[in-house]
Design a binder for these strands. Sequence first.
DNA 1: GTCTATAATTCGATAGAC
DNA 2: GTCTATCGAATTATAGAC
Lengths: 191, 191
Amino acid sequence: MPRESKKPTKSDRTRAAIVTAAQKLFAEQGYERTTVRDIAALAEIDPALVIRYFGSKDELFARVAVFDLKLPDLGKVDRSKIGENLVRHFLSMWEGENAIGGMPIMLRSATSNEVAANKLREVFSGQVMPALARAGGRENVAERAGLVSSQLLGLAFCRYVLKLPPVVNLSREVIIRAVGKTIQRYATGED
Amino acid sequence: MPRESKKPTKSDRTRAAIVTAAQKLFAEQGYERTTVRDIAALAEIDPALVIRYFGSKDELFARVAVFDLKLPDLGKVDRSKIGENLVRHFLSMWEGENAIGGMPIMLRSATSNEVAANKLREVFSGQVMPALARAGGRENVAERAGLVSSQLLGLAFCRYVLKLPPVVNLSREVIIRAVGKTIQRYATGED
DNA sequence: GTCTATAATTCGATAGAC
DNA sequence: GTCTATCGAATTATAGAC
């Protein structure tokens, strides 16, 4: 049996540095404009190591472009606060203390990279629809999921990718109140 | 005085063919993945002509990436139907008979092309905010514009760029009713 | 006016020395 | 394990023949 996990040494740091640099650059510039050389320069290692450790730029991207919405069980949430709950959840995932940078990476790359686009479609069809089925019943689940997705992805796109000033300047309180009310209506299908 | 406009002949058709091909490819693939060679091939002309007529790929993009939201005067619209009116306006601009393909081009390229991103920010700040100022007063105009933009751009992004199935399958009637109600609240700031 | 040929870069990826 | 050197393909853009 090989050693279990007792090997943080050597140049696992190199792999970690590559991943960190790749996440940052893919999120800022998207897949196309980010070069292997850029990643290596930011990680302060040789470009050849990127290929050696991850095989290809595509495989590195696939390694980085993994994320999970980690949606709560909406069946256990007070039905009248589903919208607010969902918006709070997304805001904390995107800009909380333990924020996950996966969404900007996906949004910025999904416009020109089919792998990213498929992953994003898969996540929203595979996670949002089931979650909403537990929230407001099984009627018109696809319709409700489409509406919810259009508002939440639009908020992320304008705020983190396009950086539209009026959206960047929205306070978290305003977003939770105004967008939360919208998501509440979309998610439950009521009214 | 040179001849006024009596020269549709020669190879203005070439220029027109280049523009048409460029619009289609930029809209489908974004700025980065669209090559001058691709555009020339689709227009059935020589790649060198693209540069000869438009100077560079950047200038051609700038030539194509011009669009106008053509927003109606919201001061003349029944205040209770502003949301519905705006959503109908955008849908007809995006998928009506005389649809303008500028929005998919901008959205798909704005993620990795600063020219496109600036243009998009400029249009939404320069056209949406003034229009809303005439609709619901001057209070919190930026906030209302941010909310409106996040929903409308999110709808366009999911429906035309990401092609998220639940959003693509939304009927125009559902969009006008559900999203219209959201935009009504965001635009007027009431409630 | 249009196209052939090619210059000048830049990219991802590989081979092999250390 | 890491880096030097480089390959081969693809890109934008140019010069000049027809």
